[in-house]
């Protein structure tokens, strides 16, 4: 219970709530698009640089197992999301594949919130976790689109969608940042630290207001999506999160690292995936996938998922 309230009372989460509240009271608050785009570039590059500098001082052998389980999670999570959406959510193939692409990929902001939550408890974290975000981002979307392709419903352009995912700004900035950070190492990065590290959490707060505004709009649609999907939007992150926590611990991550991997696996992408899905599966209804990813699963993870994964990681680590 303590972890739960502690997780909720943080600037990042409360800024998200502020965004939702502003939408509800119909405030004229809006984060201008160039600012939002600028902040997303800043955040993604900062994450990449930080992870890259950690990679520079991590022996390659330490990365193989965590990298492999992350890749496996990226392949398993869209499959389970697809079948849950088909069987329990009663969605059509195209809609189920679209939703699965979102759950198969990863939400960078959920990752950040989980890192912050773990750090607040004073637990040590592996510095190379951002590299795992980059690993988890792409395969899930591809696997999910394969489902639709196989069923013959994917009438959109497959090649364009793939291009969209692989060359999208989130993957270019993450991978680019990782490479730059890795090439430069921690010492050379000190020059840019005042910009990328000190202001990071403040920038994240403003980004969260924008996400809150967007999610607030989606929360209104959540009622229309139906109870079934609402429940699935809460069950899938728990299921995938538990899988992620266990896989992380088995791969030798610290309990803190495993909790973050759980949050990553349990999260649903809402930046990379929607663009790719719109191109590949134009017939899928955005009301389902955006509402689930942004309106249900993201707030659920912020409020309950992350503290749950922290607690689970701590308990599981005692048994392993």
């Amino acid at each position: 219970m303590n972890a739960l309230t502690d997780n909720l009372i943080s600037p990042v989460v409360l800024c998200f709530v502020l965004g939702i509240a502003a939408r509800w009271i119909k405030s004229d608050l809006a984060v201008p698009e160039p600012l939002y785009q600028g902040l997303s570039i800043y955040l993604l590059l900062a994450i990449g640089l930080k992870g890259g500098s950690a990679l520079a001082v991590t022996p390659g052998g330490d990365l193989i197992l965590p990298g492999a389980v992350t890749l496996a999670l990226g392949i398993i999570t869209p499959v389970s999301a697809f079948f849950l959406m088909r069987r329990c959510g009663r969605l059509g193939v195209e809609d189920a594949a679209a939703v699965a692409a979102h759950y198969g990929s990863v939400s960078v902001v959920t990752f950040l919130a989980a890192v912050e939550a773990v750090k607040r408890t004073g637990v040590e974290l592996e510095g190379f976790l951002p590299a795992l975000v980059a690993v988890l981002e792409v395969p899930g979307i591809i696997v999910a689109l394969l489902f639709a392709n196989q069923a013959g419903t994917g009438k959109g352009s497959w090649k364009k969608a793939l291009h969209e995912v692989v060359t999208g700004k989130s993957i270019v900035l993450l991978l680019g940042g990782l490479l730059i950070g890795w090439a430069c190492g921690p010492q050379k990065l000190e020059d840019v630290q005042p910009f990328f590290a000190t202001a990071f959490k403040g920038a994240l707060c403003i980004f969260m207001i924008e996400l809150g505004l967007a999610a607030g709009k989606r929360l209104r649609d959540a009622g229309r999506a139906g109870l079934r999907l609402l429940i699935l939007g809460c069950i899938i992150p728990v299921l995938h999160g538990v899988l992620g926590v266990s896989a992380g611990l088995l791969a030798g991550l610290s309990p803190g690292g495993a909790a973050v991997l759980g949050a990553m696996a349990g999260s649903a992408s809402y930046i990379a995936a929607p663009a790719a899905v719109r191109v590949a599966l134009p017939g899928a209804n955005p009301a389902y996938y955006l509402t689930l990813a942004l309106g249900i699963t993201f707030p659920f993870n912020l409020a309950f998922g992350i503290p749950l994964f922290q607690t689970l990681a701590n308990h599981f680590s005692l048994w392993l």
């Binding site: 698009e33 967007a214 649609d221 930046i271 899905v277 719109r278 955005p286 955006l290 942004l294």
Partner: peptide
């Protein structure tokens, strides 16, 4: 009513 690009821009 509902659009994929609506919160990613105009």
């Amino acid at each position: 009513g509902i659009r994929a690009s609506e919160w990613e821009g105009r």
